[in-house]
Protein backbone atom coordinates (compact mmCIF):
# COMPACT_ATOMS: atom_id res chain seq x y z
CA UNK A 1 0.00 0.00 0.00
CA UNK A 2 1.46 3.21 -1.01
CA UNK A 3 1.35 5.99 1.52
CA UNK A 4 -1.64 8.38 1.17
CA UNK A 5 -3.73 5.84 -0.73
CA UNK A 6 -7.08 4.18 0.64
CA UNK A 7 -6.88 0.94 -1.20
CA UNK A 8 -9.24 -2.12 -1.46
CA UNK A 9 -7.74 -3.87 1.58
CA UNK A 10 -8.31 -0.77 3.68
CA UNK A 11 -11.88 -0.54 2.46
CA UNK A 12 -12.42 -4.15 3.50
CA UNK A 13 -11.05 -3.51 6.95
CA UNK A 14 -13.22 -0.40 7.31
CA UNK A 15 -16.30 -2.32 6.16
CA UNK A 16 -15.73 -5.01 8.75
CA UNK A 17 -15.20 -2.37 11.40
CA UNK A 18 -18.40 -0.57 10.44
CA UNK A 19 -20.32 -3.84 10.48
CA UNK A 20 -19.02 -4.71 13.90
CA UNK A 21 -19.89 -1.29 15.30
CA UNK A 22 -23.34 -1.56 13.78
CA UNK A 23 -23.95 -4.97 15.31
CA UNK A 24 -22.79 -3.81 18.71
CA UNK A 25 -24.91 -0.65 18.52
CA UNK A 26 -28.01 -2.53 17.54
CA UNK A 27 -27.52 -5.03 20.34
CA UNK A 28 -27.05 -2.32 22.95
CA UNK A 29 -30.15 -0.45 21.77
CA UNK A 30 -32.16 -3.61 21.94
CA UNK A 31 -31.08 -4.16 25.52
CA UNK A 32 -32.05 -0.64 26.48
CA UNK A 33 -35.38 -0.96 24.76
CA UNK A 34 -36.19 -4.26 26.41
CA UNK A 35 -38.12 -4.91 29.64
CA UNK A 36 -36.79 -3.74 32.95
CA UNK A 37 -36.56 -7.29 34.05
CA UNK A 38 -33.93 -7.76 31.54
CA UNK A 39 -32.10 -4.51 32.23
CA UNK A 40 -28.95 -4.82 34.24
CA UNK A 41 -29.41 -4.06 38.00
CA UNK A 42 -33.30 -4.24 38.10
CA UNK A 43 -34.58 -6.06 41.21
CA UNK A 44 -36.84 -9.04 40.87
CA UNK A 45 -40.44 -8.66 42.10
CA UNK A 46 -40.63 -9.04 45.90
CA UNK A 47 -43.44 -11.06 47.32
CA UNK A 48 -45.67 -9.50 49.96
CA UNK A 49 -46.18 -11.97 52.78
CA UNK A 50 -48.99 -11.62 55.32
CA UNK A 51 -47.82 -11.12 58.87
CA UNK A 52 -44.45 -10.35 60.35
CA UNK A 53 -41.57 -12.81 60.71
CA UNK A 54 -41.91 -15.00 63.73
CA UNK A 55 -45.62 -14.32 63.95
CA UNK A 56 -47.66 -12.80 66.71
CA UNK A 57 -45.64 -14.45 69.46
CA UNK A 58 -42.66 -12.25 68.72
CA UNK A 59 -44.53 -8.97 68.67
CA UNK A 60 -47.66 -9.26 70.79
CA UNK A 61 -47.95 -7.26 73.92
CA UNK A 62 -48.09 -3.71 75.16
CA UNK A 63 -45.54 -1.09 74.33
CA UNK A 64 -44.92 2.33 75.79
CA UNK A 65 -44.03 5.11 73.36
CA UNK A 66 -40.68 6.43 74.54
CA UNK A 67 -39.75 8.90 71.84
CA UNK A 68 -41.23 10.66 68.86
CA UNK A 69 -39.52 12.81 66.28
CA UNK A 70 -42.61 15.05 66.18
CA UNK A 71 -44.11 16.04 69.57
CA UNK A 72 -47.16 17.46 67.84
CA UNK A 73 -47.86 13.96 66.57
CA UNK A 74 -47.20 12.31 69.92
CA UNK A 75 -45.41 13.08 73.15
CA UNK A 76 -46.39 9.80 74.73
CA UNK A 77 -48.54 6.86 73.90
CA UNK A 78 -49.28 3.18 73.99
CA UNK A 79 -49.19 0.45 71.38
CA UNK A 80 -50.97 -2.84 71.83
CA UNK A 81 -50.30 -5.66 69.38
CA UNK A 82 -52.62 -8.63 69.51
CA UNK A 83 -54.72 -10.86 67.31
CA UNK A 84 -58.37 -10.42 66.55
CA UNK A 85 -60.94 -12.33 64.59
CA UNK A 86 -61.65 -10.60 61.30
CA UNK A 87 -64.74 -11.41 59.23
CA UNK A 88 -64.04 -13.67 56.24
CA UNK A 89 -60.50 -14.43 57.40
CA UNK A 90 -59.74 -18.07 58.25
CA UNK A 91 -57.39 -17.24 61.11
CA UNK A 92 -57.13 -14.44 63.67
CA UNK A 93 -55.17 -11.52 62.27
CA UNK A 94 -52.39 -9.46 63.78
CA UNK A 95 -53.79 -6.11 64.81
CA UNK A 96 -52.74 -3.06 66.73
CA UNK A 97 -54.17 -0.12 68.59
CA UNK A 98 -51.93 2.91 68.86
CA UNK A 99 -52.96 5.58 71.35
CA UNK A 100 -51.11 8.84 70.90
CA UNK A 101 -51.13 11.68 73.39
CA UNK A 102 -50.01 15.15 72.33
CA UNK A 103 -50.63 18.69 73.48
CA UNK A 104 -53.27 19.02 70.76
CA UNK A 105 -55.19 16.05 72.09
CA UNK A 106 -55.48 12.31 71.80
CA UNK A 107 -55.56 10.21 68.68
CA UNK A 108 -56.23 6.53 68.33
CA UNK A 109 -54.91 4.76 65.28
CA UNK A 110 -55.76 1.24 64.24
CA UNK A 111 -53.19 -1.09 62.70
CA UNK A 112 -54.18 -3.87 60.36
CA UNK A 113 -52.96 -5.75 57.29
CA UNK A 114 -49.58 -6.55 58.79
CA UNK A 115 -47.28 -7.61 55.94
CA UNK A 116 -43.66 -8.36 55.20
CA UNK A 117 -42.15 -7.26 51.92
CA UNK A 118 -38.62 -8.53 51.76
CA UNK A 119 -37.14 -7.11 54.94
CA UNK A 120 -39.80 -4.44 55.29
CA UNK A 121 -42.36 -4.96 58.05
CA UNK A 122 -45.39 -2.73 57.78
CA UNK A 123 -49.04 -2.33 58.66
CA UNK A 124 -51.86 -0.15 57.42
CA UNK A 125 -52.89 2.70 59.70
CA UNK A 126 -56.56 3.70 59.78
CA UNK A 127 -58.64 6.17 61.73
CA UNK A 128 -61.69 5.60 63.88
CA UNK A 129 -62.11 1.91 63.17
CA UNK A 130 -60.16 -0.84 61.47
CA UNK A 131 -62.11 -0.23 58.28
CA UNK A 132 -61.88 3.54 58.53
CA UNK A 133 -59.90 5.91 56.31
CA UNK A 134 -56.33 4.80 55.78
CA UNK A 135 -53.92 7.57 56.63
CA UNK A 136 -50.55 5.90 56.42
CA UNK A 137 -48.22 3.01 56.98
CA UNK A 138 -46.54 1.84 60.15
CA UNK A 139 -43.11 0.68 58.99
CA UNK A 140 -40.78 -1.06 61.43
CA UNK A 141 -37.20 0.07 61.09
CA UNK A 142 -35.72 -1.75 64.08
CA UNK A 143 -36.85 -4.52 66.38
CA UNK A 144 -34.55 -5.94 68.99
CA UNK A 145 -35.75 -7.54 72.17
CA UNK A 146 -38.22 -5.21 73.80
CA UNK A 147 -37.29 -2.26 71.64
CA UNK A 148 -39.18 -1.40 68.49
CA UNK A 149 -38.70 1.60 66.25
CA UNK A 150 -41.06 2.47 63.47
CA UNK A 151 -41.89 5.20 61.02
CA UNK A 152 -45.36 6.52 60.52
CA UNK A 153 -45.47 7.30 56.82
CA UNK A 154 -48.49 9.37 55.78
CA UNK A 155 -50.38 8.17 52.73
CA UNK A 156 -50.86 11.58 51.19
CA UNK A 157 -47.44 13.00 51.78
CA UNK A 158 -46.27 15.02 54.71
CA UNK A 159 -43.45 14.29 57.07
CA UNK A 160 -42.61 10.83 58.24
CA UNK A 161 -42.59 10.52 62.02
CA UNK A 162 -40.15 8.25 63.78
CA UNK A 163 -41.53 6.68 66.93
CA UNK A 164 -39.81 4.45 69.45
CA UNK A 165 -41.43 1.92 71.72
CA UNK A 166 -40.43 -0.28 74.60
CA UNK A 167 -42.49 -3.35 75.34
CA UNK A 168 -43.39 -3.65 78.99
CA UNK A 169 -45.67 -6.64 78.78
CA UNK A 170 -45.88 -9.57 76.41
CA UNK A 171 -49.53 -9.87 77.29
CA UNK A 172 -51.80 -7.65 75.21
CA UNK A 173 -54.25 -7.59 78.07
CA UNK A 174 -52.40 -7.87 81.38
Amino acid sequence: MSSGTFGPRHRWYVSILIALVTVVSLSAGGLRGGSNAHAAGAPAAIKVVPGWPGGITVYKGRYRLTNSSDPSFAKSGMLTVFTRVVPHQPKPQMSGILSLYADSGTNVLYLSHFTTTGTKLSANVTLGIYTGPEIGKFVVTMHQGAELVANFVPVLGGSTVKIQFTRFSKNPHP
Binding site: R62, M78, T80, F82, S99, H173
Partner: peptide
Amino acid sequence: ASPVDFSLSTGVGG
Protein backbone atom coordinates in the same frame (compact mmCIF):
# COMPACT_ATOMS: atom_id res chain seq x y z
CA ALA B 1 -57.78 15.51 77.15
CA SER B 2 -56.53 12.76 79.40
CA PRO B 3 -54.37 9.68 78.65
CA VAL B 4 -57.11 7.14 78.15
CA ASP B 5 -56.09 3.56 77.48
CA PHE B 6 -58.01 2.52 74.40
CA SER B 7 -56.77 -1.00 74.18
CA LEU B 8 -57.67 -2.69 77.44
CA SER B 9 -60.85 -4.14 76.06
CA THR B 10 -58.82 -5.92 73.41
CA GLY B 11 -58.48 -8.62 75.96
CA VAL B 12 -61.92 -9.72 75.02
CA GLY B 13 -61.34 -10.03 71.34
CA GLY B 14 -60.41 -6.66 69.99
